[in-house]
Write a protein that binds this DNA or RNA. Structure first.
Lengths: 222, 222
DNA sequence: AGGTTTCTTAAGAATTTCTTAAGTTTCGGA
DNA sequence: TCCGAAACTTAAGAAATTCTTAAGAAACCT
């Protein structure tokens, strides 16, 4: 498990790095956000421990960046005891866990084990529904073997549908998955993307439930 | 989201129940493990808040039971500040999060939102009456496995009936569940919707009690 | 910068769902 | 048994939602 530690206090940083390494984690540690960003961007870690009190910027912005990525990357936040607001903001921004300083090392290790379990359990590289196959790693969709070229939003929409086969998702739910929080969508973009997707997929692959939402069904023999 | 609160302190229990309800959770609260177990066993909740200092046994045993199930059920543990060992044991046993008492209510709510995000999309809670099964997460109704397409109002009506099996509800009560406050209903809309529902459900699934209201009965072998 | 692809917005058409209302049937008490 | 109230049935118009199309904006790639 590759672990990124972002912590500006040199003493704490060094100590944690040693502890975590001896626990079997491959630790990359940085003292500031600037150093951390490329590691996240290049997909070089599986889990992030992020201190919020950093010298060169707000740690929450890195968190936001991470949560905007396609691939999930669990983040555990470290905060000072009195920064409750930050904690709540952090959790709502998508942090998977946090710890208040000062903390017990054993507790940190326990929480990391929890996050680690969550990471390793979710690795499936393809999604399928009938003849439609989505290869997440390759970012490709094929239908009866024929390759399909999907623009980003259509890809994301199809992915959301494939990840929830048999479950109806409202337009609002789908919007949340295609757009960053805070982006206002003033129109019928989802409907339009659904329309475009349908023209490329087998007929009836995507069903509409009026007033409720859209579904792809598991055992549909397109 | 149906939430089970297991907390033996009556004051805390009552306070949390009220807060959580007003946040939109459907809260079942129990004061001891004995009451909690059947709710878990019967799959009646989506998320558990578990206090570890209970009178009738070790809360960790319930946690172990839960984690032995096939279907995932997130658990948030509450502990006293000095019980660090318990916390670590709890996390390693599979608890998804914990909180140290005393805690800020806002913090609990933030953590619940995190767990809720994780759950939604994985959990499917259902209501059932004979061969009629309603999957709340998927927003789908099946009858002997066959999928039924219900318009919104019919779905809402059926849901209200299924949530109150064995309990007669007047037309006025049902109206309140289908319509916003202030919407005036000048006519027999409920009767019409009942009629349409009946055409799609097994005969006698919905009973009329003249002058009183409508019911679906639990042990009806449609 | 120019051209291409993708995204968003908008507006009218098509469709489904909802409500209303009127006539018919059923139920229970006189 | 007869009567009145309640519930059922049906159909049609109203309302709401989704589909389709197209055009301009934005992002992307030489």
């Amino acid at each position: 498990m590759r672990l990124l530690l972002v912590e500006d206090d040199q003493v704490v940083n060094a100590g944690l790095t040693r502890t975590l390494s001896s626990e079997g984690y491959a630790v990359e540690s940085t003292l500031c956000l600037a150093d951390a960003r490329p590691l996240v961007a290049n997909d070089e870690v599986d889990l992030v421990i992020l201190d919020l009190g950093l010298p060169d910027g707000d740690g929450l912005s890195l968190l936001a960046d991470i949560k905007r990525r396609k691939k999930p990357l669990p983040v555990l936040i470290l905060t000072a005891r009195d920064a409750l607001d930050d904690k709540i903001k952090g959790l709502d921004l998508g942090a998977d866990d946090y710890l208040v300083k000062p903390f017990e090392v054993d507790e940190l290790l326990a929480r990391l084990r929890v996050l680690g379990r969550r990471v390793s359990g979710v690795t499936s590289s393809t999604l399928q529904c009938g003849s439609v196959v989505m290869d997440l790693a390759a970012h490709l969709v094929t239908i009866d073997g024929a390759q399909l070229n999907l623009p980003r939003k259509e890809y994301m929409l199809l992915k959301a549908l494939l990840e929830n086969q048999g479950r109806v998702q409202s337009k609002e739910q789908l919007e949340q998955k295609l757009y960053q929080w805070g982006e206002e969508l003033g129109s019928n973009a989802i409907e339009v993307h659904i329309h475009h997707l349908r023209k490329k997929l087998p007929s009836n692959a995507i069903k509409t439930l009026r007033g409720i939402g859209y579904v792809m069904n598991k055992h549909e023999g397109h």
